[in-house]
Design a binder for these strands. Structure first.
Lengths: 337, 337
DNA sequence: CTGAAAGCGCTTACAG
DNA sequence: CTGAAAGCGCTTACAG
């Protein structure tokens, strides 16, 4: 790799000038600039980011924390790829790269420091956190640090933190309204794992919309799942066994809804005639499982893009931290309601 | 951030000694070592990776190239998350981080250099390439560079290159054998996009196993898809319209198989009684779509892990580049055959 | 086993 | 508009 010295030498200028050509081009004369640019292109000069980071304390890398909990190896995000694509392309348009942060080796596996250490060692400028619902203390520790953070689906606050989330309460409301409009009066729900924020919000919104229509959610008609398919299947079986049985079920996540669909099917119930089912997320399968899953769609691309924008505003360093972004959800009607 | 100087000062030793404690601990006296270690822990010293990279030319970062083609924004990997998890955790066990390489801003969007430049600027030690079937010249350019590369599902060769792939031909054979054992004699197939390597291999294996049993694949019974659901749907309609109609179909990817399933359903055909369908990949949906998709499973975790191991061997720099890894596939029988 | 010194490739006041 | 010089935080021969 040719260094800045090499191009300076060949151009007969100082390294400072070459540096300026790349960092504050307006300050160098048109003629010198062109000379340097041409020479750089000719010999394939590329600034060394490590050296630059060392000198400026800015790495142009944002850390990605995700899949954090070594005790939950099976955890999967329902639409990670969509988020990643949007996030990465929005960041790269501004010259930022994404570094997947691995827990620091020298911190213990349970150390609260294991991400923070990685953040500092690698000089990442900011971090994006994709929640996995585990309340990992090492993730929470990032909030206390002075590094800009944006969390997804996690109420992450602090002087340099903000978060992005779908309007989970609103989505829950949409689900309820849809079912009510279809004439359902006895409605049940399968919630997410209960202390988690999205699960709570979706339930709250759902319940409040029912209440507005004079419908109450019986305790027996609320069963918690864990977002995954099997839990939806089990929960649905439980709901089906009740008498009288609900005529509609809101599953707070599509995977669980698919499990519920299967349980209904096995019980010989027709969907939506005997029982209607509505999910949440709009994952790919939703359109594929017969009779097609009606669901509340999250704006997956919007989430990734908003995360990128939030982190970039914070890196600008101008304003205070950006307000949390709450993205609207969308009712997608398919065959299951 | 406290620097190496600070801990040296506090311990009354030279920075060289502190550096040795972290990089060649066996060479410093037990007593000094402990002193330094304690002090480092006390003041929270963390080596700065940028400075280290600058000095050693090794960054402990491996680049990830994926989703490379800006002209194909909709491209999705069927099991990216599984690969990522396995790759990341295997790498991080060795202190390596994954940097998602964004195309270099200053190369044109079509420049063959756009990944290579990012590789050099960021001093990544190696790169993992996840193929998207696009033959992006900027990806191919990585093969000519001197940086260690391992590609997934892409026959990537060169002095510092190797690749990982499932045994696509073997999987194709397994699919054929399964159908033959079930008594099928008139068999059709929906292939992947045709010049791509996995598509070709799967078809070759499939066809050769048929031939071994004295069955030939009629030209009309071979329809190409593009891996995605819709193409499977369309291809299946076409196959169904043939007379005589095949009694079994091998779709070379699960997404396409799901589309085929739908087409069969819409045509009023019972699966597997009227027509059997077998897929390839074993993605999550395979188990979810009724009647359950029989498929040839890829070892998703194995692929990620193998990629990590290959890159680490190359970084060791001892041997020549590692041999390509061909991972066995697995027949998973469900309801569709 | 340890230290002094040079060097990795850049940026940025400070002068001019 | 440009250059000389110091500094970013580390590693690594070279001596001892």
């Amino acid at each position: 790799m040719s260094s800045i010295r090499e191009v300076a030498r060949r151009c007969g200028v100082s390294v400072a000038t070459v540096s300026r050509v790349f960092n504050m081009p307006e300050v160098v004369s048109q003629q010198t600039r062109q000379l340097v640019l041409d020479m750089a292109a000719e010999i394939g000069y590329l600034p060394n980011e490590s050296a630059r980071t060392l000198a400026t304390k800015k790495s142009n890398m944002v850390g990605l924390v995700w899949d954090t909990d070594h005790r939950r190896p099976g955890w999967r995000h329902p639409f990670l790829q969509d988020i990643l694509v949007a996030l990465k392309s929005a960041l790269s348009a501004h010259g930022l790269h994404l570094l997947m942060l691995a827990p620091d080796q020298n911190a213990g596996p349970d150390s609260r420091q294991r991400f923070l250490r990685a953040v500092h060692r690698h000089n990442v400028d900011g971090v994006v956190i994709i929640d996995n619902g585990s309340r990992d203390p090492a993730v929470l520790a990032l909030a206390d640090a002075e590094v800009p953070c944006v969390a997804l689906d996690l109420r992450f606050t602090g002087p340099t933190c903000t978060y992005i989330t779908s309007d989970n309460a609103g989505g829950g409301r949409q689900a309820a309204q849809h079912l009510i409009e279809l004439g359902h009066r006895h409605i049940a729900t399968i919630t997410g794992p209960m202390p988690t924020w999205p699960a709570v919000q979706r339930l709250d919104g759902f319940r409040s919309a029912l209440v507005s229509s004079g419908i109450t959610l019986a305790d027996d008609d609320v069963v918690a799942g864990d977002w995954y398919l099997d839990s939806g299947y089990t929960a649905m079986k439980q709901l089906i066994s009740r008498a009288p049985r609900a005529t509609a079920v809101f599953a707070a996540g599509d995977e669980m809804a698919v499990g519920a669909l299967r349980a209904a099917h096995e019980a010989g119930l027709r969907v939506p005639d005997d029982i209607a089912i509505i999910g949440f997320d709009d994952i790919e399968v939703a359109a594929l499982v017969p009779p097609g899953l009606t669901t509340i769609a999250q704006d997956k691309t919007g989430i990734g893009t908003a995360a990128a924008e939030a982190i970039m505003t914070m890196l600008q360093g101008t304003a205070a931290q950006p307000e949390p972004t709450i993205l609207p959800t969308d009712l997608i009607v398919r065959g299951s309601t």
